[in-house]
Computed example of a mutant assay.
Amino acid sequence: MDFLNDILTGALGPFGPIIAVGTLGVVLIALTLILFMNRPEDPLDKLKRDQKNLAAGNSQAQRLRGSKNEKLDKYAGFLEPQDEKQLSEMRKKLMQAGYRDRDAVRYFHFAQFALGVGGLILGVIYYVLFKSGAETTTTQIIMYTLGPGALGYMAPKYWVTKRQQQRQEEITDGFPDSLDMMLVCVEAGQSLDQSIIRVANEIEASFPAIAEEYLIVSQQIKAGRDKAGVLNEMAERCGVQDISSFVTVLVQSQTFGTSIADALRVYAGEMRDKRVMRAEEKANKLPTKMTLATMMLTVPPLLIILVGPSIVGIMELTAAAQ
């Protein structure tokens, strides 16, 4: 071990053993992944997949749900959570962010893995080329090597979370206007299905997220699906409380046979009032958010103007006394 340590230190510098261990770890990870990805498919998994394909329905329904990348099936155990609850939550989050592809979960975890390993390799290369000759502590070595890998691993999750928040904000902002337009269409004599299509086409330029949801609802209703189930799926895809309440109102109106126009009129008025309340809430928060900036920009100059002459006078008196 001492002989090997002397060789690595002489070839790579004082941190030669650490670099060798890190390189060996990366190589072992790569070999493990290659062996894992090239392993033969389990016959039991193939049988289960065939049974799922038989139970999927006819080809038209399969086309409406979207095609699935069969090449990723052999890596499903690596690219998908094994827990059904985690898989469902991840698929729901990606759907709320606008990623509806059937392989979205696999793409997400592959992006995490690829960016994490890529960041780790770049961190090791950066440390070897630029920092290996300098005096660095163990904490700095870990930051230089593992820091980029951790950032790369967390980047897809941050991106999806931001996309989810932006999409939900867009849906929340455009929902009151869509309700007003839907109310006008229903009172003009159109059915609810036709009103949803008309509103989706009219509002697409301003709020494409909610227009897309309305178009999906209209296509699923045209395909013969139950309207209550389609609306509940829309509420789940959006992840907005206002949409969930709206779906509940429509389902109850359809169940009890009450007028949809009256329900839309009442709920549209509530959504307008709620939008005004959100705007007032943001306006009331603004002075509090500006307090810190105001103190940082006004208090120091004020102190300099008021206290500065006194400090100069004290310094002059002290110098004269000495």
Rank of each mutant, 00 (worst) to 15 (best):
F3V: 07
A11P: 02
I19L: 12
T23Q: 12
N38L: 08
R39F: 07
P40V: 00
P43V: 05
L44H: 09
K46E: 10
R49A: 13
R49E: 14
D50H: 13
D50I: 13
K52Q: 15
N53S: 09
L54K: 10
L54E: 14
A55D: 13
A55K: 15
A56K: 10
Q62P: 10
L64R: 10
E70V: 07
K74C: 04
L79Q: 04
E80C: 06
P81H: 08
Q82C: 08
Q82H: 12
D83M: 10
Q86K: 15
S88K: 15
M90Y: 08
K93S: 02
K93D: 09
L94I: 01
M95R: 14
R100E: 08
D103I: 07
L122C: 07
G123F: 00
L129V: 15
L129R: 15
A134F: 11
Q140E: 14
G147F: 00
Y153D: 01
A155H: 00
A155L: 01
P156V: 00
K157F: 02
R163E: 06
T172G: 12
G174N: 06
P176Q: 08
D177N: 10
S178C: 15
L179E: 02
M181K: 10
M181P: 03
E187L: 15
Q194F: 14
E204M: 10
A205S: 15
A205Y: 11
A209D: 02
I210P: 01
L215A: 09
Q220E: 08
R225E: 12
M234E: 02
V240P: 00
Q241P: 08
V249D: 01
L250I: 09
A263D: 09
A263F: 08
R265H: 03
R265W: 02
Y267R: 00
G269S: 13
E270P: 14
M271D: 01
M271G: 06
M271W: 07
R272T: 03
V276R: 11
M277I: 13
R278D: 15
R278A: 14
A279G: 13
E280C: 06
P287E: 11
T294E: 04
T298C: 09
I304H: 00
L306K: 07
S310I: 11
M315T: 11
M315Q: 09
E316G: 09
Q322W: 12
